[in-house]
Amino acid sequence: MSDRVQGYADAMFAVATAEGDVRGISDELFAVGRAVDTNDDLRSTISDARIPAERRIQIMDDLLDGKARQATTGLVSMVVAAGRGADLGKIASALAEKAAQSQGKQVATVRSAVALSDDQRNRLADALRAKLGTDVDVNVIQDPSVVGGLVTTVGDTVIDGSVRTRLSRLRESL
């Protein structure tokens, strides 16, 4: 992770801490970052220096209008205005990591074909804590390629219970 990405994450963490909603803002930024990473057009648009910064900020404001906290929208606008829109995903991941560390937790990145309910997220966090012996913040990435089940990454540990992996094993075994 570059110093620049970490610097933006630190600044965002300070803002989120000042707003008193680190978890909420971090989750929203993680979702935005994920959306930017998976959408090539959006990523290239918000990082295109030929497009005026106001226009790029307006695009993100329109996307987040009414769906995210004001602080989240402001932070996204700050990153886009600085011409670092392409790094939004990395910055959001660094922020999530920092937010979790600030609470003595680790970030568990969970990939799922479908969205998880709050109850499922909480029970998943509890199960991961029981298994890994550490508190975790669960960040869910909706990934259709998983097909079914979940893939959880905590640090260097990967717990793969996806249908995609089972199908791959089936293909290899055949």
């Binding site: 479908v114 499922q120 029970r123 998943l124 199960a127 298994k131 079914g148 089940g149 717990i159 219970g161």
Partner: peptide, 19 residues
């Protein structure tokens, strides 16, 4: 065959497996 119910079953199975 993986409808919403099936997806939930897989997720619950995963969580149970962690425990």
């Amino acid at each position: 065959s993986l409808d919403s119910s099936g997806q939930n079953d897989l997720i619950e199975s995963y969580i149970s497996g962690l425990r």
